[in-house]
Design a binder for these strands. Structure first.
Lengths: 153, 153
DNA sequence: TTATACTCGACTATGTCAATTGAGATTGAT
DNA sequence: ATCAATCTCAATTGACATAGTCGAGTATAA
């Protein structure tokens, strides 16, 4: 029931690119430092996001990456599906990555029906949350002092 | 975002044991055939469920397995947590399997806050669904003709 | 006492994850 | 034209997980 590091890094990189949307292109180096992600690994991930049409790049000395679409148009579901595959916990309840399972009768499988609920819940959240939402949340979280630390004048 | 086959097999085995609750003990052989699970692999899984206090066994010629508690007391969350670990998509939002992540500031991480929503949704569903619910659903699904096939007299 | 279960540990083949490495192609500035 | 910074692309690696398999052993009812 887990997201790989690869997928998590992709989201973190998109958070940075979302925050810089409309401005210049952002270098891998810069994302790598801000988000604490191994540079050569991030390279691979951004390339993959590019192949998926989620980001675009410019090469050469003033090169870098930017979002290929508006942040409001990029859902977490789309990103995770592209990087990881199915959102569903078992592929017999996945819409786009469906695979038949080994159970005796899929259409009457009780486990399947519960997993469908889980899938729907996950899809609902990740489909309605966009990179723009992520950026907005980030701004709010950073406008306020760190939650767990009290402070006095 | 996926359940392993191991975890799925565990749930399917528990569905069988739940349906036979109160009756005699059930042999691995029988579960293996009903649910189409490799016998020697299932052996391992049932042993693991036993170590987790979820099932109990009797050895010898009329041996087999049964649930260690009432079906209403065994939640899917407990089973999955025992077999697979965290329900959360990233371990920095897991209650019982928490691990620090590499992002610059966990307390202000926007991704974390979305992943917390996902976690809560998954936990809510798996925590309220028990083996007894699974069995009840199964009875309903099997009392009715297969959903996708029309039939005539 | 014996056949039929469960028990336990080791073993294996395959695949995935998380990188690392190296060579190449573009681009802007000088 | 040259150079340096940047993206691009393919291959490789080591560690670990997954999905089994195998064999010898132990308990128990008939």
């Amino acid at each position: 029931m887990k997201l790989s590091l690869r997928g998590e890094y992709a989201l973190r990189a998109l958070l940075v690119l979302g925050a810089c949307y409309g401005q210049e292109v952002v270098r891998i180096q810069s994302i790598s430092q801000q988000q604490n992600i191994p540079k050569r690994f991030l390279e691979q991930i951004l390339n993959d996001l590019k192949a998926g049409g989620i980001v675009e790049s410019r090469r050469g000395i003033s090169g870098g990456y930017r979002l290929a679409r508006r942040p409001e148009e990029i859902t977490l579901a789309a990103v995770i599906r592209h990087m990881e595959g199915a959102l569903a916990p078992v592929s017999c309840v996945s819409d786009r990555f469906y695979e038949k399972c080994s159970c005796p009768d899929e259409s009457r499988c009780a486990i399947r029906s519960v997993m469908k609920e889980v899938r729907d819940a996950v899809v609902a959240i990740t489909e309605r949350t966009t990179v723009a939402d992520l950026c907005a949340r980030s701004r709010i979280l950073n406008a306020v002092p760190a939650p767990s630390l009290d402070y006095m004048i």
